[in-house]
Nucleic acid binder design. Structure first.
Lengths: 235, 235
DNA sequence: TAGTGGTCTAGACCACGGT
DNA sequence: CCGTGGTCTAGACCACTAG
């Protein structure tokens, strides 16, 4: 049920419940999802709230709606873009994979007169006892906003979880630029790319909080094993 | 003003009006946008409708909202992804550029027993009398859904405009996969890429109508002159 | 304290799809 | 015809920001 006294908005609570039910596999590809009216009654709320929750699922690519027919479940949801910008660890956990992270480099650097904590990590999954790295992430985090952030062990801890829990900073937006890149041997070795004549996908950008303040500069190089899919609406 | 008798929803009408006002440059970077209450009064509608219209602007990256403060305009809006999936021609026109299109190849092909109209185009802009090609698009359009589509001159006509106006088919979603690619000399020549050791960005995917039916298979190769930016919300 | 955006309610009418 | 999602109204209370 929904908790009207919670600080979490009702439509977010409902969204999470519905998302979890899909994740648990309660619906098959193309199955009818409960109608808006049914959800209204079941959760004792109004249609506006139900629609807001469903619209979040639509944006995630988990369901789609057809007027006059109903709401349907996307079996194979689009792996909604931004691999790793909105929760690498969570995404993998939802697929019953174990996320691993290795710190390749960690230091304090000065950029344009400001101090940043530079963190380079290889990130991937552990499957059948062996590790497959999928991305190499380089992050620059401003020290003045995150004092002593270099004390954490980011091979164990999630950067965003530390930001949220220890510094009360919530990543909200990512602005990134995609480009193809030809990488050097070090990178190829980490990502286990054997083919010499291969280009990799790179994303450079910045992460902002809810007030549009920059909280991280990032650069991610993706392994060719990763599929970079996205879905968009044409207006 | 808004036309209550139009088939176009009020919030879409309002969205278009507001978008156009931003495009005309009525607001500078970071300017306060009219408040929801002000828009409500000005356009004689309710807050729900105003919020729906503004939420479209937010998704376009044209404005952002801050609780307690107001709505602000993004001067340099994120060039919202999907270059060419949601209106290459319109995008360029909004920047006072002239779109050009050259047909490189055009034929009927059979894929998995079905007939498709294959169309390969170079697309770009004309500036100061010279043409700069920015993408090479390959489209496969199913003939059974678009009979005689091969009769149109796509160096002059927009594919989506023909689909909409002549066949009443409205592209609604695009599902694409991005990958880096190393291209051959023909492509490099068309896109005027001189550097040999360069990788280009490619997008492969399909375009669907509002009923999630596939209406086009596409593959686009982007010139390095194009910036591929996108913005996403972290949840 | 006044104004802003964020959420929520309780209705209404509509276009559409299937029976 | 009924049930679906799509749109719209007219309120309400809240958290947050700034003067």
């Amino acid at each position: 049920m929904l908790d009207k006294n919670s600080v979490v908005p009702l439509y977010i609570q409902l969204y999470r419940i519905l998302k979890e039910s899909i994740r648990r596999g309660e619906y098959k590809e193309g199955d009818r999802f409960p109608s808006e009216t049914a959800l209204m009654k079941q959760y004792q709320t109004t249609r506006g709230t139900v629609r807001k929750a469903i619209s979040e699922l639509v944006m995630d690519g988990l369901v789609y709606q057809v007027q006059g027919k109903g709401t349907y479940v996307h079996v194979r949801p689009i792996q909604y873009s931004m691999w790793n910008f909105s929760g690498f660890t969570d995404y993998l956990r939802s697929r019953n994979e174990v996320a691993v992270s290795k710190v390749l480099e960690q230091e304090i650097v000065i950029l344009k007169g400001l101090s940043y904590f530079k963190l380079v990590r290889a990130r991937g999954v552990k499957r059948d006892g062996s590790v497959h790295y999928l991305t190499i992430d380089t992050s620059f985090v401003p020290i003045d906003r995150f004092p002593q952030i270099d004390q954490y062990d980011f091979s164990q801890e999630s950067l965003y979880r530390i930001m949220r829990e220890k510094y009360r900073v919530h990543p909200k937006y990512a602005e990134i630029q995609l480009s193809p890149t030809i990488v050097d041997d070090d990178v190829r070795q980490v990502l286990q790319v054997t083919d010499e004549a291969v280009a990799l996908l790179k994303a450079d950008g910045r992460v902002l909080n809810e007030k549009n303040e920059e909280i991280e500069k990032v650069s991610v190089i993706y392994s060719p094993k990763m599929e970079f899919k996205l879905m968009t609406t044409i207006t």
